[in-house]
Nucleic acid binder design. Structure first.
Ligand code: FES
Ligand code: FES
Lengths: 133, 133
DNA sequence: ATATATAGGACTATCTTAGTCCAAATTCAA
DNA sequence: TTGAATTTGGACTAAGATAGTCCTATATAT
C-alpha cells in the first residue's frame, strides 16, 4: 500500500527537533543520538533539505543546522520531493517523454489517474511541517 | 515518492474492461490480451478481487468474471487493500503489537502521521471505480 | 474425454529503499 | 599550524517490496 518513506519520517522528526531547539544551531549528531536515527542516513537527508533551502547549514566546528523558513511555510510536499525526488503516483504518468511506459497507447486509465495524482499533491501541499511539530 | 502499485493499475484497467463489456462474462485471457497485461499476474489480481466479492467468477469452459457490484459501490480503497493488503502509510503506525517499530518510545511524530493516514484513507475511500471507468 | 476456464502455491527477477563506508572540505580554537 | 568537530558528497551494500513466471489442480460445458 501507499507509503511515506522512512527518510521523510526521519526528516519530519529532524525538523521537529530543530524547530524545538529554538534558533540554536543543531548538529546532525545530536538529532541522530536523541532520535535514534542512523547518522549517515540522516546527514544525507539534512543535506537535501539544505539544498532545497529548507535548512541553512554552518560547516566546521560549532556548526550545525537551523531552519530557513517558518514551519508553516514548508509544505509536506516539498519535503517529499526534496528527499525522494520524482513525484508520479503511477507508471501511467510518464512526466518526461524519454522513458515512455510501453502501455502509452493501450492504457485506459491515464486521465482519471492524473486527476487522482493532482488531488494527492494538493493534499500534501496543504499540509505543512507545522502540522507535524 | 508515494505510489499506486502496478497491480492496482492493472485492477483498474481490468475493472474498466469488465464494466465496458456490460454483463457478458469476461475471461482473464481477454483482458490480458486486449490490455497488454501479463496473464498470470492478472489472474492473481482477479482472484483477489473475487475473494473480496468485487467480482464473481465462473470456472470451467465458458467461464469468466463479472462485476458483483455497481462501479460506484467499489471504493478505490477496498481495491488497494484487497490487492496490496496492509494499509499503514508509515512505519510509525504499527497496527499490530507483535512487530513493533523499535522507535515506539522515541518517535515524535506518531500522532500527526496518524492524522495524515486518516485523511489519505478518506480520500481513497471517497473515490470509487466509477471515477476510473 | 477434452478443451477452456478459474484457483492457487511456490518460485525468481527486478527495482526501490534503507543503510553503510569513506574521503574530502570548512571552520574554530588552542 | 595542528587538530577536533562539523558539513559535504560519492560509491557501495543490504534488505525488502514489487512485479512477473511457472506449474499443477480443480471445475464445467460440450
Ligand atoms: S500504465 Fe503506462 S500509460 Fe498507463
Ligand atoms: S517510526 Fe516507529 S513509531 Fe514512529
Amino acid at each position: 500500500m501507499i507509503r511515506i518513506s522512512k527518510k521523510v519520517e526521519y526528516a519530519l522528526m529532524a525538523l521537529k527537533f530543530i524547530s524545538d531547539s529554538d534558533h540554536k544551531l543543531v548538529t546532525a549528531r545530536e538529532i541522530s543520538d536523541k532520535g535514534n536515527i542512523p547518522y549517515d542516513l540522516l546527514s544525507k537527508i539534512l543535506q537535501k533539505l539544505k539544498n532545497e533551502n529548507i535548512l541553512v547549514s554552518n560547516q566546521g566546528m560549532n556548526g550545525g543546522y537551523s531552519l530557513n523558513k517558518r514551519t508553516d511555510e514548508i509544505p509536506l510536499f516539498s519535503l517529499m520531493t526534496a528527499i525522494d525526488g520524482d513525484t508520479a503516483i503511477a507508471e501511467c504518468l510518464h512526466d518526461n517523454n524519454d522513458k515512455d511506459c510501453c502501455m502509452t497507447d493501450t492504457c485506459t486509465i491515464k486521465l482519471p489517474v492524473t486527476r487522482l495524482q493532482k488531488e494527492l499533491e494538493d493534499l500534501f501541499k496543504s499540509k505543512t511541517i507545522s502540522d507535524f511539530v
